[in-house]
Amino acid sequence: MEKSSNLKQKDVIPRAQALLKELEAGNDKAASELIDELSVMKERELFQGIGKLTRNLHDTVSDFFDDTVLSKFSNIDQQEFPDALERLNYVIQMTEESANTTLTVVEETIPLSENIENRGNELRRRWGDLRSRKLTLDEFKQLSNDIEDYLDYSIDMSVQLSSKLNEVLLAQGFQDLTGQMIKRVITLVENVEDSLVELIAAASYRQGSPPDQKTHKSGHDPNTKGEGPALPSTKEGIAKGQDEVDELLASLGF
């Protein structure tokens, strides 16, 4: 920016001198025209500066996705970009499955609890009739049978409701799994940000200012820290489901 200002001095100085002269002479109209001219020049310079920055940004971004620059400035593996996209898609898929599981169970459960309530209400009404001695002997016998049925029915329904609630409980496991996936994407974004800062530092060094000496983040040891859930597309070395885990452990004498 400074360099371009210097280049423009030969245009600016004569106008500034002329402006001073016109102002001293009380020539307001001419002075105002000269001020306009100067501000147009200033704006043009600004737009040129913005254009240059845009160009730089574009080049930086293009360079960034170039393999060599990427590996020079960061420890980001190229494969991590498609992986991150797949991870986010997997998060959508898992949250959708979990929401659907929960909704299905709720839809199945509501009629069960409605039935329990309706049958209970009906028996309660007839029980009231019995207490106020309105029932015939036959009606009383029928009521006793129905109450017995209802007791079995309510035990059966309680078991069913517990099992449905357990399904809902397990469906919440998505929060842990998707959370682990999103954390990995956040780490990637942070690495990209760090790399961009380093690129900018290196670019400003080329333009004359010293580079920001920043040490690279060292990659963590994947084995002890854990890697989070495997992506569905990952095949090598991954145990698919509990059965394969059990097989592997059995082969180790478990």
Binding site: N166, G173, N223, G226, G228, A230, A239, Q242, V245
Partner: peptide, 28 residues
């Protein structure tokens, strides 16, 4: 009880003396 399902990790856990290994997502 973990989402880690790499074979080498399961082997590592077994060698470290784990008593059981359940991969997420799991069933009751």
């Amino acid at each position: 009880v973990t989402a880690e399902s790499k074979r080498e990790q399961i082997v590592e856990a077994a060698q470290a003396g784990v008593n059981g290994y359940v991969v997420k997502p799991f069933t009751a």
